[in-house]
Amino acid sequence: MHHRIDDRRTNVSENNPNPTLLSRLGRGEADALREVYERYADDVYRVALRLTGSSADAYDVAHDVFVGLPEAMQRYDPNRPFGSWLRGVAVRTAQMRLRSARRRREVALPNVAGLAVRSRQEAVVDRLTLEKALDELSPDLRSVVVLRELEGLSYQEIADLLGITKSAAAVRLHRARRRLKDILRGNR
């Protein structure tokens, strides 16, 4: 179920849920939560999975986001696209989880250098390699790569989502790509 990323982003931003649904969600009505879940759970789970790299963590992130969503609606600005805002909440929640998970981590990360790209002829960074390499990045750097390369967001959209400046988004993206380059070529 691959979407063209730009199409998907456009759909989300143009089709805000109706205000009544969002009001009911804010009051914690289960039916409203179910309806919002069915519409946005894929997006939330996908971004959580890509950021955390773990289906267990993605599950927990999506769980926490939707459990806390009705209360968080107090902070939602109805003039903003709901889908983007919700994705931002998911990104922040995933980042928090990643930070605490990294502090807990005791086992060394797998060496992905063996999966590294060797030459242009075989220069296909496959999905598995990228997933493992992403796991080596700090949460901040991982987030910008995911949002840019996987979610297809612009620098400004990344900046808005992460609450950083566009310049900071550009710096982090360049840093992240360079780090990935080193990891994939075994130059860490």
Binding site: H2, D42, Y45, Y59, R127, L130, V146, E149, R177
Partner: peptide, 22 residues
Amino acid sequence: LLNDLRVAGRGMRHPSPPKDLL
């Protein structure tokens, strides 16, 4: 490498959340 990153990124799996999550 930069292009490969993008291609690989956009080709990453896109599973739906587990059925029991809701």
